[in-house]
């Protein structure tokens, strides 16, 4: 309820801005728009060894086409082999996975009018998992019946994902592709649902990225984006706690300045003609070690939007 409230508030705040030259000419940019458009690449830590030269990263020759930061790609290439180790560097994602899937399942069942009690409600629907990594989201989506395309800019990730998915006939049908959202747009691919979880904080230009996601969404389709809020609490939990104290994530996984606030995300999605219908937060209970869906969007949050028919 409260997130809905927030959204109506956001829309009324944001809509006049869209018509006003203030936002368009950029000379009097609010600080966050400045953030969005000019990302400083040099502050990305280089402590993780770069991928071997013999395995050139696909992004190297398509830099202008990809919204991903090169340093981010290197970072994830170094961790690729540990994707499916539930106790490894991606443990937080493994633990969070059922919770975010529960949100995706319920919103998309409602969106597409599917029976949530059925085991494979997404049968016949085409989903794309942007930034699929090792496939920890793609595989459950495939088990729920969706025809899944998983894309990632890191070739190693795609290899790991493919290898893992091949062990089960249900998941071996996933189409893994080492490519970027931008390239799929060029190929004029369309999907019923476009899902990009924990990706937008790693891209160079979130606004452009959202436009690509929107272009991939077929008319009447759904877009889901999850990320971390640029709040003090997020700094304390997602960076200080997760990276420095608990060592859940390698140091330097996240840049606080790259995070988006829910208001910013709603704004850039609106501009990409996706209207956000629902937003939810994920909160971690350190006592039970479980994540749950909540109204609290101050740290981890997910937004579900629908493509406006033009």
């Amino acid at each position: 309820m409260s997130s809905k409230h927030l959204l109506t508030r956001i829309r009324t705040l944001v809509r006049p801005g869209l018509q006003c030259p203030l936002f368009k000419n950029g000379c009097r940019n609010p600080s966050f728009l400045h953030e969005l458009q000019t990302r400083d690449y040099s502050d990305v830590p280089q402590q993780i060894p770069a991928a071997p030269a013999s395995n050139p990263l696909p992004v190297a020759n398509s830099r202008s086409k990809s919204s991903l930061k090169p340093a981010e790609i290197k970072k994830f290439a170094a961790m690729a082999e540990t994707w499916w180790d539930a106790e490894g560097p991606f443990k937080p994602l493994h633990v969070m996975n059922p919770t975010r899937l529960a949100f995706i399942r319920s919103t998309l069942c409602r969106h597409f009018g599917k029976d949530p009690l059925c085991a494979r409600p997404f049968k016949g629907l085409k989903f794309v998992d942007v930034g699929c990594g090792g496939g920890i989201l793609s595989e459950p989506l495939a088990r729920m019946g969706a025809t899944v395309t998983g894309i990632d800019a890191v070739k190693k990730n795609i290899k790991i994902a493919q290898l893992h998915a091949d062990s089960d006939p249900v998941t071996s049908s996933i189409d893994y592709c080492c490519t970027t959202a931008e390239k799929l747009v060029e190929e004029q691919r369309k999907f019923d649902a476009v899902i990009a979880l924990e990706v937008i904080e790693h891209v160079a230009d979130p606004a452009e990225f959202c436009k690509s996601l929107s272009a991939l969404t077929s008319s009447g389709g759904a877009t889901l984006i999850s990320t971390i809020n640029r709040s003090m609490r997020a700094y304390a939990t997602a960076i200080i706690m997760a990276e420095y104290v608990l060592h859940w994530l390698p140091r330097g996984t996240h840049q606080w300045s790259s995070f988006l606030t829910p208001e910013e995300l709603v704004l850039i999605l609106e501009r990409a003609s996706i209207s956000v219908k629902e937003m939810a937060g994920f909160v971690y209970d350190p006592l039970t070690g479980q994540w749950s869906i909540s109204d609290d969007i101050s740290v981890n949050f997910i937004a579900y939007g629908t493509k406006n028919s033009e």
Partner: peptide, 14 residues
């Protein structure tokens, strides 16, 4: 059933 609802692999130890 909860596992299947979120697309988990049912043999997953977690």
């Amino acid at each position: 059933a909860e596992g299947i609802a979120v697309g988990s692999e049912i043999g997953e130890v977690s």
